[in-house]
C-alpha cells in the first residue's frame, strides 16, 4: 500500500517536473537548479497533503469544539490566501530566489579561501551515523532559534510593525499560522539561511522538520478548546498555550510587556527564559489597533502588506512613542 502511494506521488511529481519545471529552468539557463526544482515540487505536493491533513483534522475541531463561536468566517478568508501561497511553496520560492544568490556567493567566497564553516557534526562526531538522533538534535536547535526569532520580532519596533499583521487576526484559526507579512517571511528565511550556514542543516531532514513544525503550528492556532492536559501543555505547544500568545490583553506584569509564550514547538524555552503565561480560560485574540488604517487592513491582503511596510518604515525613522505590545 505504502509503495503504491509512493508510486502515485512520484508519478505526479515526475509529470509536473517533466512538463512544467524542467523546461522552464532549461529555458532560463538555470539547469543547476534542476535537482532543487524536483525537490521543490515535492515540497509543494507535501504542502498540499499537509493542508489537506490540517483541514481534515482541525476544521472539525473548530466546528465541534470551538474556543469562540463566530457568526461568520469571512475574516478567515485572507488567512486562507496566506496559507495557500505559503504551503504551495510560492512564498518560500520567492524568499529562496531573493536570498540564494547572495548566500551562494558568500559560501563560494569562503570555500575558495579555504574557509569551511564548522558544522554540527564537526562538534558532535558520529552524529551523521545516527539519523534519528541527528533529526531530534536539529529539531531542538531549530526550535530554539525559532523561539528567539519570534521573541525578537516582538521586541524590535520595526520587526513588530511587520509581525503585528500576524497578530491582528481576531478570528484566529488553523489558517492563521501562515498569515505573515511578506517581509517578515523574508527575514525568517534570512534567519534560517544564517543558521544553515552556521550548523549545516541537512536538507533531507529539512522537509521532515518543516512538516513536523508546520502541523504543530497549524494546530496551535486552531480555534478549539482542545488542551493537552495539565502536563501536556508544558511539553508541547498546543491551542490553549498559543492562544495566550495571541491574547488581546495580558497581565500588566513587566515580564509580559513584549508578549508571552513565544515557543513554536517546545514550551521549555518559555519556561527557561521566563516568558511563560498560561491560564485555564481561553482569551480573545488580536491586537488593539490604534488607527483606522489598521482596522481596515484586518481582512485585506494588500492593505496588510502596505500597512506593514508603512509601519516598518515609520518604526525605523522615528523614536519610540510606547513599548510594542503583543
Amino acid at each position: 500500500m505504502m509503495q503504491f502511494l509512493t508510486d502515485c506521488f512520484v508519478l505526479i511529481q515526475g509529470w509536473l517536473f517533466d512538463t512544467l519545471v524542467q523546461p522552464v529552468l532549461f529555458a532560463l539557463g538555470l539547469a543547476g537548479y534542476v535537482e532543487m526544482g524536483f525537490e521543490g515540487i515535492e515540497f509543494a505536493l507535501l504542502g498540499v497533503i499537509e493542508l489537506t491533513i490540517a483541514y481534515a483534522l482541525m476544521r472539525p475541531l473548530e466546528a465541534w469544539w470551538p474556543a469562540e463561536h463566530w457568526t461568520q468566517r469571512r475574516a478567515v478568508r485572507v488567512d486562507v490566501i496566506y496559507s495557500v501561497l505559503n504551503r504551495l511553496g510560492i512564498i518560500p520560492l520567492a524568499v529562496f530566489a531573493l536570498l540564494a544568490p547572495g548566500f551562494m556567493e558568500l559560501e563560494g567566497w569562503l570555500r575558495f579561501h579555504d574557509i569551511i564553516p564548522r558544522q554540527l557534526e564537526d562538534w558532535l562526531p558520529g552524529l551523521d551515523r545516527h539519523p534519528l538522533a541527528s533529526f531530534f538534535i536539529y529539531l531542538v536547535i531549530l526550535d530554539f532559534a525559532e523561539y528567539w526569532r519570534h521573541r525578537l520580532s516582538h521586541t524590535f519596533r520595526w520587526w513588530w510593525a511587520l509581525h503585528g499583521i500576524h497578530h491582528s487576526q481576531r478570528q484566529m484559526s488553523f489558517w492563521t499560522d501562515s498569515r505573515n507579512h511578506l517581509l517578515d517571511d523574508l527575514i525568517a528565511g534570512l534567519w534560517f539561511a544564517c543558521l544553515s550556514l552556521l550548523i549545516g542543516v541537512p536538507p533531507g531532514h529539512f522537509l521532515g522538520l518543516l512538516i513536523a513544525l508546520r502541523l504543530v503550528e497549524n494546530l496551535s492556532h486552531t480555534n478549539t478548546r482542545l488542551s493537552f492536559g495539565q502536563l501536556g501543555d508544558y511539553l508541547i505547544v498546543g491551542p490553549r498555550y498559543h492562544r495566550w500568545h495571541h491574547a488581546l490583553d495580558l497581565p500588566s506584569d513587566l515580564r509580559y510587556r513584549g508578549g508571552c509564550n513565544f515557543a513554536i514547538l517546545l514550551p521549555a524555552w518559555d519556561i527557561l527564559f521566563g516568558t511563560l503565561y498560561l491560564e485555564k480560560e481561553l482569551p480573545p485574540t488580536g491586537i488593539h489597533e490604534i488607527s483606522t488604517a489598521e482596522i481596515a487592513a484586518r481582512d485585506d491582503f494588500w492593505a496588510q502588506q502596505k500597512l506593514g511596510l508603512t509601519l516598518f518604515w515609520k518604526a525605523l525613522v522615528t523614536r519610540p512613542e510606547k513599548s510594542p505590545s503583543a
Binding site: G32, M104, G108, R111, F112, D114
Partner: peptide, 17 residues
C-alpha cells in the same frame, strides 16, 4: 563543486588539495 562554481584538484594519493 556544482553549487559553488569551482573545480578542486587533489593529489589522489592522499587527497590533499
Amino acid at each position: 563543486s556544482l553549487r559553488l562554481d569551482r573545480v578542486d584538484l587533489y593529489n589522489a594519493a592522499d587527497f590533499s588539495l
